[in-house]
């Protein structure tokens, strides 16, 4: 028994020592990245960056965009924001930080091959890929929707699921895009939500689960989740609606408080370079870069119809749209 207690003690002590060892202070050559990329993608991206920039060690905090922004806001409130670089799903949050003068401009960034909608005019944030939202359906479903307007048909009543704009940035942009267009407007959103009793769930992952399992037959979902699931064998199909897709750009930005601005800029440059973009393609994303071909199985970027949207206008209305959504549909 005495011996056992001793081994247990040694084990606990060495475990504690291992935990302590993880307690390393940030050195000057450490780049702190907060990102909402999936685990594997984030690890690949930073590994590729480190190969190009051997002197820089990247520390990652990975979580949902909401969690990242909460953490950052708390750090700002406590007076010491930690990250050098942010890489999150949509530009709404970054636009807000820009307004508070918390982003560092990077005027030397090479944006020659990025479409103008993909980066901020003042060069404070840059889109790194195109994440579009379209229609997904279960292959066992009766109908084959071809357009957003189809989803408003009574045939689809009770069978549609979408991410709630109150919890997902990409979904908030989708709803605000609809709301801003005269041919859609709030009438369309009401016919989806009230007329067809669409269900709004928390996040895109929940939409995929619902449609793949057949709980609901049709959904609004981001492209890569639908296409990756389909490739693995899930019974789902992704549709580019006739009116076009909505899109977010997974932008990257440098904080003004960054302690390592040179490395931060190098990281941004890497992400929007041809090499960084090819890496994103390898992970199953649509590139933002014009000269990089999309992944196999994806339609070419030129053939993608993205619904035209005025980002600045959307940012002005998005909070009001969310409130209206919450009030109208009993959230």
């Amino acid at each position: 028994m005495a011996l056992k207690t001793k081994t247990l003690k040694t084990a606990l002590l060495s475990a504690a020592a291992a935990l302590l060892a993880g307690w390393t202070a940030a050195s000057a050559q450490t780049l702190v990245l907060y990102t909402s990329q999936p685990d594997k993608d984030a690890a690949e991206t930073t590994a590729a960056f480190s190969r190009r920039n051997p002197g820089v060690k990247v520390e990652i905090f990975r979580s949902g965009t909401t969690e990242i922004m909460n953490k950052l806001m708390a750090e700002i409130a406590a007076g010491d924001p930690k990250p050098d670089v942010l890489l999150v799903a949509d530009s709404i949050s970054l636009e807000l930080l820009k307004k508070e003068n918390r982003l560092l401009a990077h005027p030397e960034a090479d944006v020659a091959n990025l479409p103008a909608e993909a980066y901020d005019r003042d060069r404070t944030y840059f889109g790194t890929k195109l994440i579009t939202s379209g229609i997904v359906y279960n292959t066992g479903a009766k109908e084959r929707p071809a357009s957003w307007k189809d989803l408003a048909d009574p045939k689809y009543r009770g069978q549609i699921v979408m991410p709630s704009p109150l919890y997902s940035g990409a979904a908030a942009i989708t709803v605000s895009t609809f709301a801003a267009r005269p041919d859609f407007g709030w009438g369309y959103i009401e016919s989806l939500m009230k007329g067809n009793q669409a269900t709004a769930v928390r996040g895109n992952g929940a939409v995929l689960r619902s449609v793949a399992s057949g709980e609901k037959a049709y959904g609004i979902l981001v492209d890569f989740m639908a296409l990756n699931a389909k490739q693995k064998g899930s019974p789902v199909e992704f549709v580019i609606p006739a009116e076009g897709l909505t899109a977010v750009t997974e932008p990257v930005a440098i904080l003004r408080t960054s302690r390592n601005q040179k490395a931060a800029k190098a990281f941004v440059d890497f992400l929007i370079s041809e090499e960084g973009q090819k890496l994103a393609v390898g992970q199953g994303y649509l590139p933002a870069h014009r000269k990089v071909a999309p992944p196999a199985g994806y339609p070419s970027v030129d053939s993608l119809r993205i619904m035209p949207m005025d980002m600045a206008g959307l940012l002005a209305t998005i909070e009001a749209d969310k409130k209206r959504f919450a009030d109208s549909f009993g959230q």
Partner: peptide, 13 residues
């Protein structure tokens, strides 16, 4: 609360 946290804005906290 989570909705508010997802909503952003300087006064969210």
């Amino acid at each position: 609360i989570y909705q508010r946290l997802a909503g952003l804005g300087p006064r969210v906290l």
